[in-house]
Write a protein that binds this DNA or RNA. Structure first.
Lengths: 230, 230, 230, 230
DNA sequence: TATGAATGAGCATTCATTCAT
DNA sequence: CATGAATGAATGCTCATTCAT
C-alpha cells in the first residue's frame, strides 16, 4: 500500500497522490498493463474517485506526462545556473538531468519509454518537451562557442544536429544509468561532456572525420524473411 | 491481408510468415495492444495454428525479438568489412545499422521500443544484443586508436563509456531518422561520426573538458510530489 | 442549467424544481439512462439534497409518476365541463387530454412510455390512473347513450370494452401527435371522435359487424424460433 | 436455465438461441436493465460467444427487433388470407395480430415498449414495420369500401387517419390483453372490429359527429409546476 | 439547510487460450 | 495439418448512494 489511507482530504492533495501512484504504475508496468484498479489501490482511494478527478485512463496518463515533463524541464533549467559560463551551464544542466532521471526513474520511464510507445497523442506531448530542451541546449552551445571566441556564425543547422545528438545521447545514457546500479549522475554527465568535447577524435590523430564517397554499402542479409519488409 | 492464403506449406515457411506478421503488428500496435487475432489474420492462418507453432504470445514475442536482434547484429557485422581500417569499419558499421533500422522500422520498434517496455524478460533479450554490439564497437575504437598510433592502454572503462555513448546516440538517431522523412542512413552515420570525432570540442578552444569538483549541484524542486519518490 | 441557482428556498419549492428536472430527464433519457447526477444538476441542487428530499431514484420516479398522473387526470376532468351534454363533455375531455399531452411531452413520456417499461411497481401506479380515466369515459358514454334516448341497459361489459378501446386509441394518437409536428390537439380529438362515432361502419353498408364463428385461424409460422415461446 | 447446455452446435442454431434469450430478457427487464451476463446465461453460452456472434448489446437488440418485427408482420399477412372479402381479411388479420402478440409477449414488449424508449435508431426500426402494417390496413379498408359499393374515392387522407387510429387502438389493446388474464385474441379482435364498424355512433342517434367551433377549451390547471414546461 | 468527498457493486467489452473435429 | 467453436479472467468505466462537515 502506497499512501497511508487517510480519509477526507482536499481534492488537490488527492489528485497528487493519484498522479504519484499512476506515474509509478505506468512507469513500472507500462501504459497498457497498468490497471486503473492497481493505480487506485496504490493511491489508497477507490477507482470511481480516480475517474471523478482524472476522467479516464488516457487523461490520467496525459496528466502524468505533463507533470513529469514539467518537473524534468524545470529541474534542468534550475540546474543550469544562468550566471556561469556556458560550458559550465551545460555541465550542470546535464548533471541535473541525470540526477532527476535517477531520482524519478518511473517518471523518466513514463516520458521516455511509455509515452512514446502508446499513440501519437502521448508522443506529441513528450515531443514538445524534447523540442524545448533541444532548443535550450542549442542556445547553450552557441553561447559557449561565443565565449570561446570561436566563429559564432557557424552553420546553425550543424549546431542543431549536434544538440540533437547530444540530447539523444543523454537520453540513452539516462536509461543505461538507471539500468546499471552504481552509476552516479556526475559520472554520466562527465562521460557525456567528455564525449561531446573531445570525442573519439582525441583518440585519433585527425581532428575531423569525413565520410568516404565510395560505397555500394548496404547489402542486406535477409535472415529468413519471406515477405517484403513493408 | 498480408500473405496470400496458400494452403499446406512447410512448417518453417509458415513460421516465418507468422513472425513477419507478428513483428509488424507488435511494431505498430505495441506488445499489449497487438492481438493474437490480428496477427493470425495478417499471417493468413488460424489462431490455433499460431499457438501450435509458437506456444503463447510471450513466446511469439520472444521469437520476434530473437529474429530481429539476430538480423540487426548480422547486418551491422556484415556492414563493417574486416579488411578496412578501423575507423572505416566503424563508419560502414554505423551506415549498415541505420540502413537496417530504416528498412525494418517495425523490427527496430520491436527491439528498441516494445521489448524494453514490457517486462524484464524481453528487456534482457535485447540487452544481450546491445551488449554484444557495444563490445564490438569498443573493439573497433581500440583498434582505431592503435592504428592511429595513440596510446592503446588508456583506461578501458573510459573507452567503454565512449562506446556506450556512441551506441546510445546511434539508437536515438535511428528513432529520430525513422520519424523524420527524408533522412538517409548515410546522413545519419555522417552526423554521428562527426559528433564522435570532432564533437563540440572543435567549436571551443580547449581539447579536453574536465568536470569541476565544486558541488552544491543537485537541489531538487519537488513540484507537488507528496510521497517519497520510490 | 434549468433553474436559476438561488439559495435557501422553502422545501416545497425545491422539491417541485427537483421533480421538474426529474420529469424532464426521465422523459427524455428514459428511467435507467437518466442519472441522478444529471437530475440534480438540472435542478440546480446538490445530489445529497435530492436524496434528502426524495429518498431514492425509485421514489423520485414514483413521485414524478404521481404528480404527472394527477396533473393529467385533473386536466381531463377540468376539460370535460359537467354542465354540457355528455358527447360534448367527451369531446372537450379528449381535447383537454391531447392539449395536456402536447404541452407536457416529457410528463406524457414518463407516464406512457417510461413507467410502463421499468417494473411492475411503476406500471401499477400508471394503471391506477388509467383505470380511473377509463371509468370516467365509460360513465360519459353511458350518459351520452341515455341522453340520446338509447337503450341504457346494453351490456356493461360491452361499453367497458368500447371505453377501453377509445382510451387506447387516444393514447396512441397522443404519441403520434407528439411525434408528428403540426398536429393540433383539436385535430387529434376530432379524428378520434369521428372514428368513435362513425368509424369504418360508415364506409360500409351494414351497421354492425359480427365475428364469424368458423376458424381454426391462428396457425403460427415459427420463424427460426428454437425454444418454447415462454 | 433456458436451453439445455449442449456443446458445440453450428453457429446459426446458437445464434437463434441467443436471440431467444435476448428477446425474453429485453422484453422482461427492459433494454437497459437487461445485462449481457443474464442473456448469455439464459442462452446457455458464455458472454464472449454472444459478442462474437452479435457484436454488441446494440446490435443484439437490433437483431431482436428485426427478427420480431419480421415474425409479426409475417404473422399478420399470413392471417389475412387474400381470398376472403376484405372485411373478413381485416378481421382475421387482427385476430392473427392479437394471437401473435399474446403468444410472444416478450417479442411484443420488445417491439412496442422497449424499442420505442431507447434511442431513435431502435425506434426507427420499429417505425418501419408499423408503416408497413398501416399501409396494409389502409389497403384493406379501401378494398372493403369498394366491395361494399361505397364511394371508393373518399379522401385518402381520411382513410389513412382511420387506419392509423385502428392500428393504434390495436396496439393498445394488445398491451391491455397481455396485461389482463383471460382475454382471448378473438375477443380483442371482436371488440376492435365492433368499435371500428359501429363505434359509439351506434349507441347514439346521429351517425356523424362534428366538432363544435366554440372554444375556451384548453385552460390548464398547473399542478405545482414551477418552471416553464419546456 | 446544504454539500464536497468518497465508494460498493455492477456492466459492456476484449483477449489469450483451448478443445473437438 | 488445420480450424470453427467456445470460455475464464480481466479491464475501463459508471452509477446510486452515503458520510462528515
Amino acid at each position: 500500500m502506497g499512501a497511508v489511507k487517510t480519509k477526507r482530504m482536499p481534492r488537490a492533495v488527492r489528485e497528487q497522490q493519484m498522479l504519484d501512484a499512476a506515474v509509478r504504475t505506468f512507469g513500472q508496468r507500462g501504459y497498457m498493463a497498468a490497471s486503473m484498479d492497481e493505480i487506485a489501490e496504490l493511491a489508497g482511494v477507490s477507482k470511481p474517485l480516480v475517474y471523478l478527478y482524472l476522467n479516464s485512463k488516457e487523461d490520467l496518463f496525459t496528466a502524468c506526462i505533463r507533470r513529469e515533463a514539467k518537473a524534468l524541464t524545470e529541474a534542468v533549467r534550475a540546474g543550469a545556473r544562468p550566471g556561469l559560463p556556458a560550458d559550465r551551464q551545460l555541465w550542470s544542466g546535464l548533471a541535473a538531468f541525470f540526477t532527476h532521471t535517477a531520482r524519478h526513474p518511473d517518471g523518466w520511464a513514463v516520458l521516455h519509454l511509455q509515452a512514446r510507445t502508446h499513440g501519437e497523442v502521448f508522443a506529441a506531448e513528450v515531443a514538445a518537451m524534447r523540442t524545448e530542451i533541444v532548443a535550450f541546449v542549442t542556445q547553450l552551445i552557441l553561447e559557449a562557442a561565443r565565449e570561446a571566441h570561436r566563429d559564432p556564425d557557424l552553420p546553425a543547422r550543424e549546431v542543431s544536429g549536434l544538440a540533437e545528438a547530444l540530447v539523444g545521447a543523454a537520453e540513452s545514457l539516462a536509461d543505461w544509468a538507471n539500468a546499471t546500479p552504481g552509476v552516479t549522475a556526475r559520472q554520466s554527465a562527465a562521460t557525456l561532456m567528455n564525449f561531446a568535447w573531445a570525442g573519439l577524435g582525441d583518440l585519433m590523430e585527425g581532428r575531423h572525420w569525413t565520410p568516404p564517397d565510395d560505397e555500394a554499402g548496404a547489402g542486406e542479409a535477409q535472415a529468413g524473411r519471406t515477405s517484403p519488409v513493408r
